[in-house]
């Protein structure tokens, strides 16, 4: 992760590094013009009068001398799918992990239902009702669907596992999400298809009365039909009033399910608005150059040198 931002040191507010390496950052060529003015024009205030479920303000995160997120603001409203886009190394995963509590932010504030909150650990975020479905799904192949869905939060009766109760709850959740293609809820996850695994991972995330579900590249490894199945699932989560954040490279998926789109570029949020205000062209421009429109200069083409 560290090398993604190598050479783009940002020495203004964060001389927190341990070895003084950031001092050399001043010598690095400024590849990124100041976007703040332009971004301000792009963002039109959300028309929704309600407070978004989760509001991020001024999130900053660095790893040693390497700055991963610069002053990121993001709103995640309930009942809407927000797509988080960006090229490799834009900071999508870092931002997600900050919200999930895996990383702790250096600066910035979280507002959960309008109240300021702190997220220091995955437990904190889980307590708020935030669940993350990672790209590698984190399912144990040798356990069955019920066992996976309750892993780490088993229900007990007299100190022993209450399998009946867990099985009922799991099958209820799967039925609500209309995940009906599995043959038996007691089959090991090893025997499921890619789309079915993704469905189980999502069902696992929503079973805990979660209010915000973040999906990291949910369709990356799936075929056409299974992608459709997962996107339908995402819509169902939204229809149930959950806030959904989908991280995706795939613009087809983004435009198919997203109500809102937020775009990161080199650790800065460069755009955030209703999906209808974007088109494919503009999203690609934001992702690759960090800006959109005639103002984009040819000199900005170094914007996509981040790799992972």
């Amino acid at each position: 992760m560290h090398r993604c931002w190598g050479g783009r040191l940002h020495g203004s507010r964060h001389q927190l590094d341990h070895n003084g390496a950031a001092a050399s950052g001043a010598a690095a060529p400024r590849l990124i013009p100041r976007y703040s003015e332009r971004v301000a024009q792009v963002i039109t205030e959300s028309p929704s009068p309600a407070e978004p479920l989760l509001r991020l303000r001024g999130i900053e995160k660095h790893f040693g001398p390497v700055q991963a997120l610069y002053n990121v603001d993001l709103d995640l409203p309930s009942g809407q799918v927000t797509a988080l886009c960006g090229d490799n190394g834009a900071g999508k995963s870092v931002l997600t992990k900050c919200i999930a509590g895996i990383y702790q932010v250096d600066h910035g504030q979280f507002f959960w239902e309008g109240q300021p909150v702190t997220i220091h650990s995955p437990r904190d975020s889980a307590k708020l009702g935030i669940e993350t479905v990672y790209q590698d799904l984190a399912l144990a192949d040798n356990l069955d669907i019920v066992q996976n869905m309750f892993l780490g939060r088993e229900r007990l009766r007299n100190g022993l596992l209450n399998e009946d109760d867990m099985e009922r709850a799991a099958s209820q959740t799967l039925a609500n999400l209309r995940v009906t293609t599995v043959r038996s809820i007691r089959q090991p996850v090893a025997s499921l298809s890619g789309g079915q695994r993704q469905s189980v991972a999502v069902a696992k995330a929503v079973m805990w009365n979660s209010k915000l579900v973040m999906l990291d590249e949910p369709t990356a490894a799936l075929g056409v039909v299974q992608t459709q199945m997962v996107l339908d699932l995402v819509r169902r989560l939204r229809d149930r009033g959950l806030a959904v954040m989908v991280i995706s490279h795939n613009l087809n998926d983004v435009f198919e399910v997203a109500d809102r789109i937020a775009i990161l570029h080199l650790g800065r949020k460069v755009a955030e608005d209703r999906a209808s205000t974007f088109d494919r062209q503009s999203v690609v421009e934001y992702m690759t150059t960090g800006a959109h429109g005639p103002a984009v200069q040819a000199g900005n083409d170094k914007g996509q040198h981040g790799t992972s």
């Binding site: 209309r178 009906t180 293609t181 043959r183 038996s184 007691r186 089959q187 090991p188 090893a190 025997s191 499921l192 298809s193 789309g195 079915q196 039909v225 299974q226 459709q228 199945m229 339908d232």
Partner: peptide, 26 residues
């Protein structure tokens, strides 16, 4: 329409999966 493809893939997915599903659960 979204349901239709799901139910179409269902049998194939299950048939492939059958080999590792323990018999006593199905």
């Amino acid at each position: 329409q979204a349901e239709a493809p799901e139910s179409r893939i269902d049998p194939t997915a299950s048939a492939e999966a059958a080999i590792v599903v323990p018999p006593e659960i199905v």
